[in-house]
Nucleic acid binder design. Sequence first.
RNA 1: UCAGACGGCUGGACGGCCGCGCGGCGCCUUCGGGCGCCGGGAGGAAAGUCCGGGCUCCACGGGAAUACGGUGCCGGGUAACACCCGGCGGGGGCGACCCCAGGGAAAGUGCCACAGAAAACAGACCGCCGGCGCAUGCGCCGGCAAGGGUGAAACGGGGCGGUAAGAGCGCACCGCGGGUCCGGCAACGGUCCCGGCACGGCAAACCCCACCGGGAGCAAGACCGAAUAGGGGCGGCCGCCCAGGGUCGAAAGACCGCUGGGAGGCGCAUUCCCGCGCCGCCGCCCGGGUUGGUCGCGCGAGGCGUCCGGCGACGGACGUCCCAGAUGAAUGGUCGUCCCCCGCCCAUUGGCGGGGACAGAACCCGGCUUACAGGUCGUCUGACCCC
Length: 115
Amino acid sequence: MAIRRLKRRPEFLQVASSGQKAATPGLVLQARARADADPLRVGFTASRKVGGAVVRNRAKRRLRAAAEAVLGPKGLRAHDYVLIARAETVRRPFQLLLSDLDRALERVGRGGEGR
RNA sequence: UCAGACGGCUGGACGGCCGCGCGGCGCCUUCGGGCGCCGGGAGGAAAGUCCGGGCUCCACGGGAAUACGGUGCCGGGUAACACCCGGCGGGGGCGACCCCAGGGAAAGUGCCACAGAAAACAGACCGCCGGCGCAUGCGCCGGCAAGGGUGAAACGGGGCGGUAAGAGCGCACCGCGGGUCCGGCAACGGUCCCGGCACGGCAAACCCCACCGGGAGCAAGACCGAAUAGGGGCGGCCGCCCAGGGUCGAAAGACCGCUGGGAGGCGCAUUCCCGCGCCGCCGCCCGGGUUGGUCGCGCGAGGCGUCCGGCGACGGACGUCCCAGAUGAAUGGUCGUCCCCCGCCCAUUGGCGGGGACAGAACCCGGCUUACAGGUCGUCUGACCCC
């Protein structure tokens, strides 16, 4: 299934300022509930701190693959998620990266309004 | 076999599962799109953005001079270059080869740290030689610049003669300068003759000479498209000088940018000469397009192969292929097997763990520069061994 992407800078800023946040060794997750009932949306961020262009692209691709696997079945409708890459994102074994995202999603969901 | 020089190629392989974006075809569609099949989807540097072009828009009238920037041995290659090839000159290496910003220093200005006596019209610290005086090694006077010392560099080099000691003072050689002739398209090289040391170095110091050069860049630019500003048209108001015209007036004159010209200001890199364009305020209408979308946007100085010309860079002919096109930015994620490297354990097989370089297209080409684990091929050089 195709997940809608966040693309505009204002959309990212909105999630960062008004959403919730959970940090794990492999990634940082930000989440925000929207008023409408549209499907969930997701965005990816990898700053210069992570590495050069090659490393940042690879980090985004791994986060995208993890989002397909975890957010697809478990993500909430009408939510915006932003996954932020860290230095570990590229080196972390993939199974651990998946469980990182799983736990982060749980922690964020507990604080929010739920389904 | 070892050591080395130069040039080229390559940049992990295979498979399973799950994906991304592009194109084509087919089907479906609520016209937003969806599904299926097929095809192709990162680099040698895609990097730095340092040169040269294509392309696009802007500026674009001519001449002279100036300024600014760049290039700098010669010949060739090329669309072009600061690139490449072949030479020349200088330097390094036993050699294969490598390195050089390599025009002009008798046009002028300037600089040459430290050290050293002295750093550029020469001069004399230690010294050398002669004379005089005496307390025989010092003082004074004169001659000298070969020797020592300093330095990146010391007013030709070292040799013979010569001399009190010395000095191109004399001689031959080398260097330097001028000329003749020969070879070469040329840079330049060589022969012979003459001169008799005059002309230190630095031009990546200013400078001089020769040649070249509009500006900005795909966020260029075009189209579709709410609002604002600028632009065009109409109406009104204001404005320096001259001429024409118009209105009012009997006239004097007054008024009117309606027409032409001038002055002034601004622009065309600067200056000069000629030349060209534009010219303030308010209202209404037309129109205008930031974000967004579409195009630009990949058939090209194109790749590969064969043959021909050329020492080579490269050129030509024929055949053949179509080969990324994203825009919060696709070209992948993951697992397994194998390959290579490293560490540890057993140390024969083997086992465990870790690692696999530099790096990601953004309009496109030609170069340069920088980064890079490893593998591989070819040519050549020097040593040693064998025949």
